[in-house]
Design a binder for these strands. Structure first.
Lengths: 147, 147
DNA sequence: CTCGGTGCAAATGCTTTGCAATGTC
DNA sequence: GACATTGCAAAGCATTTGCACCGAG
């Protein structure tokens, strides 16, 4: 994962935004995000930040994630729960989710045919797509075996 | 929309549940749900209930929607906002959503090819699917023209 | 020096919960 | 009658906001 490239994207976004400032907190949060694997929530990211010695408030974490969302460095999901979940988007191809309602496990998958469907639908409805989420809820193989 | 059939489904679910009871509130809420068109949230449903003279508490609305979810009479979605949205599932074919990030409009669409993709993916991952949600976030034609 | 950003704590808004009263079975 | 369900209000959580201080530009 190219950390510098991600920082460049953020820096560019801040400059082009006009009044946005480059603060150490913002880059520290970006770094922490880049170190994640898979999904994370605000609570977990915040915990990892403070236990790594980074002093930030939860409010800043929320603000910064919103910022990273704007420049496409993270993706935000909402599965069944009340909590928003994020994942780094930089350098990751688009993928979707199988969500096990029994154990909560999330399995990722990719499918090129899906992109064609997206294009078809959007063309038909004259809709300009930005991001697509396909979520299949059900039971994973482990839980099916268990009972 | 066959109200009686929906009631039968609920009744059956209550009986088969073992200890679940058939209360007037539950059926009143089901009736109100069946009268909806498109999506609704708890607040709106609750408002419609009390203004129609049905005396229920919001807690019961939440409980009952959970119940209706279990027997497949409603579907529950979580788009970008903090609020859960529902819609009646009985008698409605499966469909998906284009969500405009600018005006919040939700456009529904259907696609048979999608079901084949779902089957493929689930077979590959040995996953038993229960419900599928495809959400495409972007900008609708109205908002594209505006700005 | 200006004004955007931060931290903190309080506020908000959706959802859940505790408990006494109610009504189904 | 027993005990699931209800209503109400209070509690819980994730997220947002207000405000004084701080620091990037």
């Amino acid at each position: 994962m190219d950390t510098q490239a991600a920082r460049d994207i953020l820096t560019h976004h801040l400059k082009s935004g006009g009044k946005l400032r480059a603060t150490p907190e913002r880059f520290a949060i970006l770094d922490a995000v880049l170190q994640t694997q898979g999904h994370f929530d605000v609570e977990g990211l915040y915990y990892r930040l403070i236990t790594t010695g980074v002093k930030v408030s939860k409010a800043t974490v929320y603000n910064t994630l919103e910022l990273l969302l704007e420049c496409g460095l993270v993706a935000k999901y909402r599965f069944a729960e009340n909590t928003s979940r994020y994942e780094k988007a930089f350098g990751r191809p688009q993928h979707h989710h199988l969500i096990c309602l029994s154990c909560g496990d999330i399995i990722e998958f990719m499918n090129e045919k899906l992109e064609r469907i997206q294009d078809d639908v959007c063309a038909e409805k004259d809709f300009f797509p930005q991001s697509t989420t396909l979520q299949i809820f059900g039971t994973c193989s482990k839980c099916t075996k268990k009972g």
